[in-house]
């Protein structure tokens, strides 16, 4: 991953179906933060690159695609990279779901509502300022 070293930018993973949503999120993060964004269609694909790229943040859909669900994925991600900051996106605005995901190791839970991209970027920037100032 030479270009990451060259640009000295921290990395961020978006895990979920590559879609208009992930593209818009990708563009907003490119514009408003210093992260290099990687997008994966499934948790399995992301896990293969996790240790080589060592992202600072993982944004994970609670149903990231075929294979593992969000809860299984977050457990696997945290076991490989415990220090990564993980944000779970869910269409289910249910406290029990959120608590289960937090217990599994998620650092944050965001309900996928209108203007969710803005909320995600704000959270990323707050993580960024806490970690890199």
């Amino acid at each position: 991953m030479k270009f990451c070293n060259k640009y000295k930018k921290p990395s961020l993973f978006i895990v979920g179906n590559v879609s208009m949503f992930s593209l818009q999120l990708n563009m907003e993060i490119n514009e408003k933060s210093n992260y290099t964004v990687y997008v994966y269609n499934s948790a399995e694909d992301a896990l293969q690159e996790l240790q080589s790229i060592q992202p600072k943040i993982v944004i994970l859909d609670s149903f990231p695609g075929k294979g593992m669900n969000g809860q299984q994925a977050i457990i696997a991600i945290k076991s490989l990279l415990p220090e990564v900051y993980s944000i779970i996106l869910s269409s289910n605005n249910d406290a029990d779901t959120a608590i289960d995901l937090i217990k599994s190791g998620a650092d944050s839970f965001i309900y996928k509502k209108e203007n969710v991209i803005e909320e995600i970027v704000d959270e990323i920037l707050s993580v960024n300022s806490n970690q890199f100032v």
Binding site: F3, Y7, V18, S19, M20, L23, N26, M27, N30, T36, V37, Y38, V39, Y40, N41, D45, E49
Partner: peptide, 18 residues
């Protein structure tokens, strides 16, 4: 292309611009 996994076309073009 634009919508691609791993590094998208928009990220490629943003970085290539440097």
């Amino acid at each position: 292309d634009i919508m691609m996994p791993v590094v998208s076309g928009v990220t490629f073009m943003s970085l290539f611009n440097q």
